Amino acid sequence: MRQDVHFVTLSTPDLDAARGFYVDGLQWTPLIDVPDEILFFQIAPGLVLGLFDAAKFAEDTGADVPVPASGVTLAHNVGSADEVTEMADRAITAGGSIVVPPEPGAFGGIFHAIVRDPNGVLWEIAHNPGWHVTDEGTVSFD
């Protein structure tokens, strides 16, 4: 099996709150928006983030209605510490809540903040000067 991930799909207890946060607040453009079911966002070449209504997610997977994702963070890397603060402020204005305010990270020489979206999804917003993406899309760490 190839080492690829094409979809990250999260069970979302309140799809309208997610829409308000990502579309209205952060100004993300949905790839597909099916009311009362799922929101898809193209987040990288060949990679889609899905926010799936929790009851529909349970129906699709045959599992009990799952709780919001835990033990997981999604990360957004930016070009400077100032951008970390700006993005964290924007996420708060969009309806998110701060978990870790913008500060130097304990690991890897980064500056970061952690924000929770309205459904409990944790986002790390980070400036990591040692993180690079080549023109071909390969990630490297210095």
Rank of each mutant, 00 (worst) to 15 (best):
A113Q: 05
G71N: 12
P13I: 13
A113P: 05
L47E: 06
D4S: 15
P30A: 08
L74H: 04
L47D: 05
A63K: 12
S11M: 07
R116C: 12
M1Q: 12
P35D: 11
L47F: 11
P104D: 14
A17L: 11
I43P: 07
E59V: 03
A75W: 00
E103K: 13
N77Q: 09
E136Y: 02
T73M: 14
D53M: 03
L122E: 15
F41D: 08
D24S: 15
H127N: 11
Q3W: 08
S80M: 03
T9P: 02
A106W: 04
V72G: 00
G105E: 00
V23K: 02
I92H: 05
D117F: 02
T85W: 02
D142T: 13
W123D: 08
S80P: 02
V34Q: 12
G96M: 03
H112P: 00
S97W: 01
P68M: 11
D82M: 03
P30I: 05
G130Q: 13
G46N: 06
G120V: 10
G50Q: 10
G96N: 07
V72H: 00
P102F: 06
I110S: 14
F57Q: 08
A106P: 02
D36V: 00
E124Y: 07
P118W: 05
L74Y: 04
T12L: 04
A91D: 00
S97T: 15
G46H: 10
D14Q: 10
I110C: 11
V115S: 09
A94W: 05
S11Q: 06
D14T: 03
F57I: 08
L26T: 09
D142H: 11
G109I: 05
L10T: 10
E59Y: 01
